[in-house]
């Protein structure tokens, strides 16, 4: 057992979720960048090429407790007020919450062999744009991520195309 870890488990969770999103963006052929400074809870931005060069801004979360609602069509994720507020306000570049589901055992988050590098489970996305104000004093709320909103290269390309289309509309 090593004792020289610099990162806490929460740091590693963040790193894994970022790694996941960067891998998906790379497969989709897009550029990723970290904002130069922490503003409005945005962790990563993704830019596509072509006409209008759309960009989306992402807030990344990782959790081992992504619970599915009874209907089976949505996950519930507890979101803090600051993140909720920053993601629901009007913006020029659309913002999304991306939540990565992680295995319960941290040893399983990343596995590596000569033949493959594996990140277990996956991430889901949701837009909170235009949602209502939280009541005064409420510090967090449940947000629902559709199961169909899996964050993969196909959904990312579709998302980017819809951003491009809506922007030009």
């Amino acid at each position: 057992m090593k004792h020289d870890n610099l990162l806490a488990n929460t740091d590693i969770e963040s790193a894994v979720s970022e790694l996941y999103v960067k891998a998906v963006a790379a497969k989709a052929g897009y550029e990723t960048a970290r904002p130069d400074f922490d503003r409005d809870s945005i962790d990563l931005l993704i830019r596509a090429g072509g006409r209008v060069r759309p960009q989306i801004d992402l807030q990344l979360k990782a959790t081992m407790d992504l619970t599915k609602l009874k209907c089976g069509e949505k996950f519930s994720y507890q979101c803090d007020r600051r993140t909720y507020d920053n993601l629901r306000m009007p913006t020029i570049n659309p913002r999304f919450l991306v939540v990565m589901e992680l295995p319960r055992e941290s040893e399983e988050w990343i596995s590596l062999s000569a033949s493959e590098l594996t990140l277990k489970h996956c991430a889901y996305w949701v837009s909170l744009k235009g949602l209502n104000d939280l009541p005064a004093g409420q510090s967090s709320c449940s947000v629902h991520l559709p199961v169909v909103n899996r964050f993969d290269h196909i959904s990312l390309q579709t998302l980017m195309e819809s951003v491009r289309t809506e922007a030009a509309a």
Binding site: P35, R39, D40, I42, V52, R53, D57, N86, M89, P90, T91, I92, N93, R95, E166, A167, A168
Partner: peptide, 30 residues
Amino acid sequence: EAYGEFSDVYSHGSNEILLPNSEYVADYAS
């Protein structure tokens, strides 16, 4: 052309730039 509701695309030769047309957006500073 317009880029969404709150910004416009400007060009100069092959260069493009996105400029906000409203201050009242959360990512104005970015």
